[in-house]
Design a protein around this nucleic acid. Structure first.
Lengths: 234, 234
DNA sequence: GACAATTCTTATGTATGACATAATAAAAAG
DNA sequence: CTTTTTATTATGTCATACATAAGAATTGTC
């Protein structure tokens, strides 16, 4: 009985659509198709692959969904440079994401903001710093409402992301904002102890003006101290 | 003639599938559906929405593609906690991604590795450090082949990602590996000047044993100096 | 009456054919 | 030669039919 195991290849359980999808992706890779290139029309694929138009269309739908191709109505489909973030913007529904992932994402934010000091220092302009100063100047005293504070928090840190000059990172932050507010609102991590953070926004701007990438990085680390404490318990 | 402009609402050019997709996503959000919950079967959606099964199925295909739902054959579809990274693994074909995005992603790697010092220090175990020591011990002298070096580079830094205990970040790194090798191979950034990095893997392990999160962070920053120089050009 | 074997029933997967529509190309009109 | 009109074409949508496998219902056996 056992002998058969070696003779029998595992059966391919994938659906036709799965196979066609793989075939198409491999085609893109093998033929080194670049954005803008046209891909065969549905009928041609039907004939070449020997499956129904239904299957071909479903495969194409998948590729469209992940942003690899774009179809111009009545014209055909073309390769597209996928906007990675756009793709899962739709999937970014905090309510349906499991808690571990939410925590992970929250952590990644902290990691990114600490690590981006060099990019900021390399690319900051006087105008950026001025704008950041104004944002800080408009911040209310910490005694005022927390909702307002969150708003300013987003403004300040958002500007920092912009200053990295890294569009992908900016998109990333934008994408993650709903997750952050969700995490704040939920009981996922305990409510902030709201002890004054060791380094304020104001001080960070100061480091930006007169400090170095290193000092700014450490300043940011201390600024985020509250968050770290909440993540690691204590 | 001009007067009409105010009277006329802009026509909705979205396809039926677009609308159904939005409707379904809003349903998930409004009804606060959680992973595991069942969603109506195709026929029911057909009747409720007044569109053909073709349209419903194409909408569902999209949701499946971004990982929001999962369909069990002949049973129905259920809500799924989307694995965000899995989603665009398929779209991660460096050849079709535009160069700016590739650069951005490469930068994000540097940012992450510098920023993750705290996570590593918080969660490292003796075993981790031991394993890392062994990886370093097996590294060839820098005189040997570059291909080998890339391999060890991946091993070492990959282990660091693991040590963060952040699954999402690990997946992220895994996902980005093809991008890195592509960026290396391409002329996207100039070939490394291969000046000895200021801090070696060996020294990093040492910082991990005897240093602090801060010193390790700065060590990593110096270790990645080569990459930064190439990104920023002199 | 409990359990096993068999047969529906059901929901998705796949195939086929049809028609609408809009972008383009081709043909006709001036 | 330019403009207008008329095919042509490829995708979007609809309708219908059947295959298949999971689960439910039924039957059969002891």
């Amino acid at each position: 009985m056992e002998d058969f195991k070696n003779e029998l290849a595992t059966i391919d359980t994938r659906s036709l659509v799965d196979k066609v999808e793989m075939t198409l992706i491999n085609l893109l890779i093998r033929k080194e198709l670049k954005p803008g290139d046209k891909i065969p029309k549905e009928i041609e694929l039907v004939e070449a692959l020997g499956v129904s138009r239904t299957v071909v269309r479903e495969s194409l739908t998948r590729l469209k969904t992940i942003g690899l191709i774009e179809s111009v109505k009545h014209r055909g489909a073309i390769i597209k440079s996928p906007d990675l973030l756009e793709t899962f913007k739709k999937a970014m529904i905090p309510g349906v994401m499991d808690q571990t992932t939410l925590r992970d994402i929250f952590e990644m934010r902290l990691v990114l903001e600490i690590g981006m000091a060099d990019l900021i220092f390399q690319r900051k302009t006087d105008e950026d710093v001025k704008e950041l100063s104004e944002i800080v100047a408009n911040e209310p005293e910490s005694s005022e409402g927390i909702l307002f504070e969150v708003d300013h928090e987003v403004k300040f840190h958002g500007k920092l992301y912009k200053m990295t000059g890294n569009q992908t990172m900016m998109n990333f932050q934008n994408l993650l904002l709903p997750v952050f507010s969700y995490v704040y609102d939920s009981k996922l991590i305990e409510r902030p102890i709201k002890k004054r953070s060791y380094v304020s926004h104001r001080e960070l701007v100061d480091l930006l003006k007169r400090g170095t990438a290193e000092s700014f990085r450490e300043g940011m680390r201390k600024h985020l101290e509250n968050h770290f404490q909440r993540m690691f318990g204590e």
